[in-house]
Amino acid sequence: MSRLALGLSALVAALFVTALAVGPAPLGIWHGLQALIAGGDGPEVLVMREIRLPRALLGLMIGGALGLAGAAMQGYLRNPLADPGLIGVSGSAALGAVLALQTGLAATVALGLPLAALGGALLGVGLVLALAGPRGSSLTLILAGIAISALAAALTSLVLNLSPNPFAANEIVFWMMGSLADRSMTHVAIAAPLILLGGVMLGSLGRGLDALTLGEDAAEAMGVNLTRLRLVLIFGTAAVVGAATAVAGAIGFVGLVVPHLLRPLVGARPGRLLWASAFGGAAMLLAADIAVRVILPARDLKLGVVTALVGAPLFLHLIYRTRQEGL
């Protein structure tokens, strides 16, 4: 286990430094890192501190958040196919952002886009809670989440449908593919507190999720407060996924694939899987964001497209392997 922790943190650290080193500006690694740490007023410092550092930080945070939320959601639902988007937060956050783009709020108000997305996420989680009730089974939560996701997707399509000019539609579609390009430290400042808060909430669920391995009845009889666990899970997921979607758009498959991939390495224990998936998610997103910049630097390849392109086949392979094991 400690070997896994060591390996994953080394991987994340290496990818983080690589992410700082990759970009269109011709900067040597050491030169860049020197400029980042020492400061000064050259263009290198600007590139490192204002462009690459926020991008790498967002990759680290959002990847970790998505991995953690995916592991928590799978643990709670006891289903390896669950995904943090299942409770409708990413869909409603995307709807908020799309409305901001459509109405011009994103262009006229500073930070209008991420704030509208956060508003959407908040509204979405409120509706899910109202539908599913503060108590109740995991099934009602899934159903409420699917209903809200479907509604948000339909409304998003409606906005696109009624969009009067093709440029706005174009912008919306590109935003929804998810990206970390051109984000600033302000975006980091918006997302960081929420991701941190939600991360702490989700991270505290380990013991309860472990106990849930035996089913809801047995877990409750062992002193796990399921009502509280469910609320912490919903609000924690809403905070991290809402914040992630608000600043980076919809990035799929990280929360789905990473826990699945790491599960055998932590002995399938849901509690341990939480932190492992946080590291794994950070590694996957940093790697994908590096790939975006290296493979087609001139074409603005979208991050969400790459995670889906990598994630979907990987996921199919995992399903195939799971089926072979008869699990």
């Binding site: 006891r78 849930l212 391995t213 035996l214 002995g267 399938a268 224990r269 849901p270 699990l327």
Partner: peptide, 9 residues
């Protein structure tokens, strides 16, 4: 209900 959700040892 004999539930064992994950392949733990």
């Amino acid at each position: 209900q004999r539930e064992i959700a994950w392949p733990v040892d």
